[in-house]
Every structure is written in structure tokens, then in C-alpha cells.
Amino acid sequence: MKPQDQPLTSEQVGSVLKMLALTTERELNCSECLQHVGEFAETRLASQPVDAVMSSIEQHLALCPECREEFEALMTILQAGK
């Protein structure tokens, strides 16, 4: 079955609603996120406080499932290397 022939799940509807709740006037795009996500991951691992740029990354990761998937994979790699 093709992806678009399946009923929408509660995760899918919930995540779009959450995205709408978080939508703001100015947002980072995925390329900007990619440029800074390494720094964000290291900040997270070191449990350091987040500055303005880092918190906009955090917001983008909450909104964007693809960048979030890549971020989580990056955390897996960094944690394995610790």
C-alpha cells in the first residue's frame, strides 16, 4: 500500500497540530538547521545552557521530523564515541 492510501494516524495528526502550535513568524529552514545542529548536539551532550541560536535550532527540531530524525542519529553517533 502506498503511504497516501493509509488512514492518518494519531501520531501524524498530533504532530501536525503540534507543529501549528509552534509556528512563528520567523523560522529557521532545514539548511540553516543543518549548519548548526552539530553545535546544538554537542551543547546538549555537555548539558550546557542554550543561547538564542541554539534555541531556534531546538524550535526547528520540534517542528521538523526530518531534521529531528537526523539529529537523533547524530546523538547516537556522538554517544557511541564518548
Binding site: 548548526h36 552539530g38 553545535e39 548536539a41 554537542e42 537526523e70 547524530l74 553517533i77
Partner: peptide, 11 residues
């Protein structure tokens, strides 16, 4: 702003 390898790994 991060380790080079972290930046590269993200790409």
C-alpha cells in the same frame, strides 16, 4: 563552532 567531525557527520 563544533568539532569538525560532528559538523561533517551531520552532513
Amino acid at each position: 563552532r563544533s568539532k569538525f567531525t560532528t559538523w561533517a557527520q551531520a552532513i
